[in-house]
């Protein structure tokens, strides 16, 4: 009888020990997740996930970029004669045109036909310097952004916007172009996509319970000086808050990961500032 008591006490003690050890391993596993994740960056990405921010896959690849200078092209009206099948006019350096006979586009993939059309002479001026920008395009507007040093520009000054009617008919477009694009300084290494998203999160610009819709590397206007613009590579990140259902576009300086704001650094002769939020709508 005494021996049985001892056995009972042993059983109880070991059950308590087992429960304790089990909870220890549980905690350990959570920690090990963090370690296996690999980098401090990943820890923050995990933290973002805990804040219900869905980030998708983030690349750690680093590329190079330049400081560029550019001017808004002012001689578009001299080339209106080259355009065929359209009524075009230039207003404040923006070319606005309506096609006399509209083109039929595939509503799912409007770029398929446009990529061909844009290369044809007489369709648009300098079409080859623009590239389809899926992220900025909507059902009624197909956006082509200008390429600066093989990278998209994120600026209303370097953009071709095609108007598409509900029935998929291409009716017209507006165009602004950047000219005199020059490299101001030797190329420098840029931060990765992951680093940019982390910076934005650390600046508190990504609300909890939200989703990153898209992110891309694009040239943005940093400042305007003596009638010329300075463009730098930026990470453009569009987020959507699940709570308010609002879209928001933010930019991060891709050289150093600082918050990007055009207005802050304007020094002289600045006018018609871009409004980063209002400039484009996210899809």
């Amino acid at each position: 009888m005494n021996f049985k008591r001892i056995q009972e006490i042993f059983l109880l003690a070991f059950i308590v020990i087992d429960v304790f050890l089990y909870t220890m391993t549980k905690n350990g596993n959570i920690q090990s997740d963090d370690t296996n994740a690999g980098s401090a960056g990943n820890t923050i990405v995990k933290e973002m996930k805990r804040d219900s921010i869905s980030v998708g896959t983030l690349s750690q690849k680093r590329t190079n970029g330049y400081y560029l200078s550019a001017e808004v092209r002012t001689d578009l009206n001299e080339h209106l004669g080259d355009l065929k099948n359209q009524n075009a006019r230039v207003d404040n350096n923006t070319l606005i045109s309506d096609f006399r006979h509209s083109y039929k586009l595939n509503p799912e993939h409007p770029e398929k036909r446009l990529n061909e059309l844009i290369k044809q002479p007489g369709f648009v001026i300098d079409g080859a310097s623009y590239h389809y920008d899926r992220d900025l395009s909507t059902a009624t507007k197909v956006v082509y952004s200008q390429l600066l040093e093989n990278q998209l520009a994120y600026s209303a000054d370097g953009r071709l916007t095609f108007n598409v009617a509900r029935n998929g008919q291409l009716t017209g477009y507006s165009q602004r172009e950047l000219a005199e694009v020059k490299i101001l300084h030797e190329k420098a290494e840029l931060i990765s996509e992951e680093r940019a998203v982390i910076s934005l999160y650390q600046y508190n610009e990504i609300p909890n319970n939200s989703k990153i819709l898209w992110k891309k590397l694009a040239y943005s206007r940093l400042l305007q000086i003596n009638g010329k613009d300075v463009y730098i590579p930026t990470w453009v990140i569009a987020t959507k808050s699940n709570a308010t259902n609002k879209n928001q576009v933010n930019r991060i300086n891709a050289f150093n990961g600082a918050a990007f704001n055009t207005q802050k650094v304007n020094v002289a002769n600045s006018n018609n500032d871009e409004n980063p939020q209002g400039e484009s709508e996210a899809k």
């Binding site: 056995q7 070991f14 059950i15 050890l21 391993t25 350990g28 596993n29 090990s32 370690t35």
Partner: peptide, 25 residues
Amino acid sequence: MVGIAVIISIILSVSLLTNPARFSS
């Protein structure tokens, strides 16, 4: 039952000791 409890505690202890997470921080 006592035997099973002892074996479980041994398994858990070994897994804890060999787990790299111990050195995580």
